[in-house]
Design a protein around this nucleic acid. Structure first.
Length: 426
DNA sequence: TCTGGGGTCCTAGGACCC
DNA sequence: TCTGGGGTCCTAGGACCC
């Protein structure tokens, strides 16, 4: 049996857990640069606020209702998530951290310690509430996909009280008959539309399709999905961190721009950031991609859609590296090749791929000594920036124009990771 | 005025090899 | 008139996840 623990509107719940005055009020959390809504409390959902809705569209609603608004406080959410995951290891040996607010547990063999899975679920919920004040939903099932479905039912059906156990064929049959196919884990908009054409609308119908047919429709992913719905595990628990295979960063500008100098400036900053991620994982990148994106929503003065340009350029680096000084020349060169002056760009992105472990570093015969020095330099820069704040020490070419950086207007305190922002009790 | 920012996996098709 | 039969590797693009 697998259990899936999933926090209810996690970001909003974290804000609430450190600010009880928000209890019962509509709360929303915004994406980077306060662009879109990425988390909503139930009260906010009841007001009709949608996932991904642009924040500026809520101006009128905010006048009518007292909506608590927050920028994304990743330091706080990340730290709370780490506490949540560590708590879960008290209940099972094998814990897969699936996302910032979700974890799969392999609970087979532990049921003898508890009267039932239902009881185990309730105990976990109570413990998380006691220690973290975060509401969670818990679903149990013989495969990860069924646990996901159980979790969804636990969240949506109040009678379940946050825990749903699918442990008998009867319960599974009953649940799948009414479960919409488009809400299944792994069925996105495209597949749902295709299945709809063949009148497959519920998980139960999907479970009964011929395997060859589903392979044609949804490739091998569809095959795995159908087996999982039938109760045969295809997606196994993945414990331990797997090193990332790529890193990218593509924060948008505050407004669109045609200014190459400013784009170069942003690119330098993004590259520094993404190299830091690389070093944190002890990896080197063999390949670098620079891309530009225009704003697909933008209209010209005449109301016509603005012309779009989304070019990219990939460079194979002469040697795998995680040093910004080794890459900056290639990145800026690539940018200059793809940039065209008559487009309004919304963002410049950089992606590092072909990652290898830094333990396998291939040294260049002619620059080995220099590489060593540069490695020490980047490590020193990382440490200083960790201690004094990010970007305190940076390349001279970065941020000659400080217009583009992120803006977070509604940020709460980073009260679990910064002494200066610790909560005060009055 | 303002519309996020990350990731993974799979497939088809092209280029190349003998 | 008829033009083989295996392979591998790479890339772009699609679909999905949070």
């Amino acid at each position: 049996m697998y259990a899936l623990i999933d926090a209810n509107c996690f970001y909003c719940s974290v804000e609430r857990s450190f600010n009880p005055a928000l209890e019962g009020k509509p709360v929303i959390v915004l994406s980077n640069r306060d662009g879109c809504v990425v988390a909503r409390s139930n009260e906010a959902k009841d007001l009709g606020i949608n996932m991904g809705q642009p924040f500026f569209q809520l101006a009128e609603l905010r006048k009518q209702h007292d909506i608590a608004v927050f920028s994304s406080n990743y330091a706080l959410y990340g730290d709370t998530s780490a506490r949540l995951m560590s708590l879960l290891t008290h209940f099972a040996e094998d814990v897969e951290v699936y996302s910032i607010d979700e974890a799969f547990l392999l609970v087979e063999g532990f049921e003898c310690l508890y009267p039932s899975y239902q009881d185990l679920g309730e105990i976990i919920r109570a413990k998380i509430d006691q220690w973290l004040r975060i509401p969670v939903s818990i679903g149990f099932g013989p495969t990860k996909t069924l646990a996901k479905i159980a979790n969804r039912l636990a969240k949506k059906t109040p009678e379940h009280n946050g825990v749903c156990v699918l442990d008998t064929p009867e319960k599974i049959d009953e649940s799948l008959k009414n479960f919409p196919v488009n809400e299944i884990w792994g069925v996105g908009r495209q597949s749902a539309r295709k299945l709809e054409c063949f009148d497959i609308k519920t998980a139960d119908q999907l479970r009964k399709v011929p395997i060859d047919w589903i392979r044609q429709m949804m490739t091998v992913n569809g095959v795995r999905l159908v087996y999982e719905l039938q109760g045969h595990p295809c997606k196994l628990l993945e414990v331990g961190q797997k090193p990332k295979k790529s890193f990218c960063t593509e924060p948008g500008f505050h407004r669109v721009t045609t200014d190459l100098a400013m784009i170069e400036d942003a690119l330098t900053a993004h590259l520094s950031r993404v190299c830091e991620k690389l070093r944190r994982q002890n990896s080197l990148a063999g390949c670098l991609t620079v891309y530009l994106k225009t704003n697909r929503y933008r209209k010209t003065a005449t109301g016509l859609p603005d012309k779009q340009h989304n070019p990219s350029r990939t460079i194979v680096l002469p040697h795998p590296t995680n040093n910004v000084l080794d890459m900056i020349h290639y990145a800026v060169g690539a940018l200059n090749e793809i940039y065209a002056p008559d487009y309004h760009y919304q963002k410049v992105g950089i992606m590092l791929t072909d990652l290898v472990s830094a333990d396998y570093r291939e040294t260049n015969l002619f620059t080995a000594g220099l590489d060593e020095k540069r490695l020490k330099l980047s490590n020193a820069v990382d440490k200083l920036n960790q201690r004094f704040g990010s970007n305190k020490l940076r390349l001279a070419s970065q941020q000659h124009n400080p217009e583009w950086p992120m803006q977070f207007q509604y940020l709460s305190k980073r009260c679990t990771t910064r002494w200066s922002e610790i909560l005060e009790a009055k």
